[in-house]
Amino acid sequence: MTLRATTSQTVGPFFSIGLERLNRAGLAGPGIAGERVTIEGRVLDADGVGVPDAIIELWQANSYGKYAHPEDPQDKPMEAAFQGYGRIPTDEDGKFRFATVKPGAVPGPDGKLQAPHIAVSVFMRGLLRRLVTRIYFPDEPGNAGDFALSLVAPERRQTLIARKTPGTDELLKWDVIMQGPGETVFFDC
């Protein structure tokens, strides 16, 4: 028997009533190991206007590079209190902000380590199907040889790399530009 995957539909404008229960902008509670980072940014449409009815979901490994999932075969420390999942709706200006720990490196398809990254799903009214992207970290030596970044045209790679904020190591900026100049790279996943 071969079935066919159900087709996607937009989350529409009213998703918060069904999805806000799982809103989670703090991924790492006290006691979770790793370098603390806060990432903030905006979701912008083709006119550069903030999207007030978008929601982003995050999926990441812990700081050791281990996913809280039964199929991760790596012999690395698990942390019971770290799920690695986040869900953040944008505010009326299209802004979002979340705090986590920087994930460790996880293996790529050739067994070589990927640079630390957070997998991101983007949903919004007007978007008929989820978009997938990734957040990478600035000043990360592994970015140069990263498997997924190398699939992207060099001039567009910076859309996937969070930017540093002058005067602090803890706050990073990363925007989601839906269309037009500086358009974020989205993956067929």
Partner: peptide, 28 residues
């Protein structure tokens, strides 16, 4: 025909991403 998609759809083609450990795992 779905007007809200016009300014929220990417203009660039998606980049094909082979699945890695990051994509074959997910929240439990």
């Amino acid at each position: 025909a779905y007007v809200s998609s016009r300014k929220r759809a990417p203009a660039q083609p998606l980049v094909y991403l082979p699945h890695t450990l990051s994509e074959i795992t997910g929240p439990v």
